[in-house]
Amino acid sequence: MNEFTVIREHGPQPTPLSDEVLAKARADLFAEIHAAPRPVRLRRRTVVVAAAAAAVAVVAGIMATSTPSPTYEAPVLVRFHMPVPPPELKPVPEGVTGPRFTAEPGWLAAVYSDNKPGAEMSAIYVIASNRPGNDGVPTTYDGKPAVLHKVDQDEPTFHEVALSWERSPGRWIKLTGVGRFADEQIVRSLAGTLADTDKRLSLDIGVAPAGWELYAFKDAGPDGTGAVTSLRDPANPDRTIHVSTTSGLVPDYGQTVEGGPVDTIPVSVHGRRGDLVQIPGKQWMLQAPLPDGRTFQLQVPADFTQQQVIELAEGVS
């Protein structure tokens, strides 16, 4: 055996990819696809050339972070209101589970997915956005102007129908049926079952620096972990705050964090013991339990004060 064979055959083996994980990842991707603004349709050759010319990001570009400016205006914390989830389907159609929520600036999607593995996944997406849908043919829904978009693709099999309309002033809803829900009558019928919801996103942050916006939200898995809420400064998009639910508190936190080892500062969050560490010049990290038993981790830029980091943590729910 050479080194490569040894690693392949005797190194860590891959963990199984469950149908549930695959379906969830696919649903997250579709939520992103359906929420993405549709470009102007170009002839294919034009598109390929355009793609070649846009040699900017490639791989490193996507992940690259620019060197932050050493000075920022001192952040001021204010009350922050998380966006309201889109209206929910009542009742939830048979055979799908959800909703799970996912969000980025300008839109928030509720995903109802069919977890059964198969050639074509079925799902329903309800996306609330502050911008109108513009791809498709004009139609009407509920007496209002609407846009209907259909995809019938054979290789690989993919079918969807999306209906977009302004449900309330300035709030556009796009309801997309995929797979067995990809039928105009079904989509219109589902739209008729939408009802305003009192649900809230599973990881709220009630305090934020003034002017910051919700950058991303990803819902928790079935065990309550893995939810992520991210905020960013629109004026300096590299400046972000992330809070995520975790599977428990990490012992010796300061010894294990990336950028460590560093000393752990014991703090009180929601009246419970939390751990705070400062990675010099980079960020603060804090872990603490929530009153409902979940645990979370908070990452905050280094120029915030220790007291502000604790105030942010107190706002997590």
Binding site: G11, P12, L22, R26, R41, L42, V47
Partner: peptide, 29 residues
């Protein structure tokens, strides 16, 4: 990938082709 620039749903086929192998690589690490 080029088609997905005008029809984003085409990107789903990239996912279907490579999600298992990318997961395999990541999970080994």
């Amino acid at each position: 990938l080029a088609e997905s620039l005008v029809t984003p749903e085409r990107f789903a086929a990239i996912f279907d082709r490579y999600a298992p192998v990318v997961h395999g690589y990541l999970s080994r690490r």
